[in-house]
């Protein structure tokens, strides 16, 4: 037989094997749950994008770097200052909130009203800046972040769930619930929504609009810090971990950029589907699958899953 024939047969066998759906239900659920944990981290970063975008119309490309800084702050507190884990979480949230407020007061306030392009360039620059500063402070090594939970994987039927994954999902659910209650029932939360919907009217109500911007930056820096603390033990701690923000960005767009439930659903969809794709299709598909899903959804629904068409006021 000629070699070409063999080569062709071999290729066909390899492809059909690769794309053949394996009806392996255990593997499906295994991938589903670990994908869910990953999706939660995407969702939290996407949430940070959305919060800032809705209130200030800035797309903060440094959101992933906020997460990285939060994770390193927590790591330093635990590793060098030997602070107990739960106190570290509280301290990190406070430090990141202060970081967000300072960034808004010292820099963003002077960029209000600049063209969108300069703002985008600024946040990209900020991301680079934070990455290199983190490199200077914490070196470019990869660190192991201590996990707050340990122990055996929990068996759920025949599916084993890592306790770390459980923690990620649980913490995300709790955070989302808290944010929901905050936006729905507190005066400050409603005032934040009001500011992002109609700044002029917010001024008329006596709302301190500049103050609201600071609150939003603080809030999204805190959400990013939570994402960092959750992600670092399961993945790694490195100055470049912020690049995961590039995966969270499609999650935010998928949800309709500007919708908080959209960001969460978008994050979960991307996390779960890319994990399934990596397991059932080809391993390398995993890295591009987020974008494939995004393109597919945007073709069908250009405004995103939870987005609304921009209406013209009459």
């Amino acid at each position: 037989m000629d070699t070409n024939y063999i080569r062709r047969r071999y290729l066909i066998a390899w492809i059909s094997d690769a794309i053949k759906p394996r009806r392996d239900i255990v593997m499906f659920w295994q991938l589903f749950t670990s994908g869910m944990a990953l999706g939660c981290v995407y969702a939290l970063i996407a949430l940070g994008f959305v919060l800032i975008y809705k209130a200030t119309e800035v797309i903060n490309f440094a959101q992933g770097e906020f997460m990285m800084v939060g994770a390193f702050v927590a790591f330093s507190l635990i590793h060098f200052a030997h602070v107990p884990f739960w106190i570290t979480v509280v301290l990190t949230l406070l430090i990141m909130a202060a970081f967000g407020v300072l960034l808004d007061r010292l820099v963003m306030r002077f960029l209000v009203g600049e063209p969108a392009f300069s703002l985008v360039m600024f946040t990209i620059g900020l991301a680079l800046f934070l990455r290199s500063v983190a490199g200077m402070i914490w070196s470019t090594d990869t660190f192991a972040f201590p996990s707050p939970v340990s122990g055996e994987a929990i068996q759920l039927g025949s599916v084993a769930i890592a306790p770390g994954d459980m923690l990620v999902v649980g913490a995300t659910a709790l955070l989302v619930l808290l944010l929901y209650l905050f936006f729905r029932f507190t005066n400050l939360g409603i005032a934040l929504q009001a500011t992002s919907q109609n700044q002029f009217a917010a001024y008329l109500m006596g709302i301190n609009v500049e103050g609201m911007f600071s609150v939003v930056w603080a809030l999204s820096a805190m959400v990013a810090a939570v994402a960092g603390i959750l992600l670092a033990p399961t993945l790694f701690l490195h100055k470049d971990m912020g690049f995961i923000g590039l995966k969270a960005f499609p999650a935010a767009v998928l949800g309709g950029f500007g919708s908080i439930p959209g960001a969460i659903v978008g994050g979960l969809i991307i996390g779960i589907s890319e994990n399934l794709a990596g397991g059932f299709l080809l391993p390398w598909v995993k890295d591009i699958f987020a974008y494939l899903v995004l393109i597919a959804v945007l073709i069908v629904r250009p405004e995103g899953l939870f987005g609304i068409h921009e209406k013209k006021k009459v």
Binding site: Q193, A194, Q197, N198, F200, A201, L204
Partner: peptide, 10 residues
Amino acid sequence: PEGREVFDEL
């Protein structure tokens, strides 16, 4: 204000 300016989504 002129033109109402209510908070649409609230």
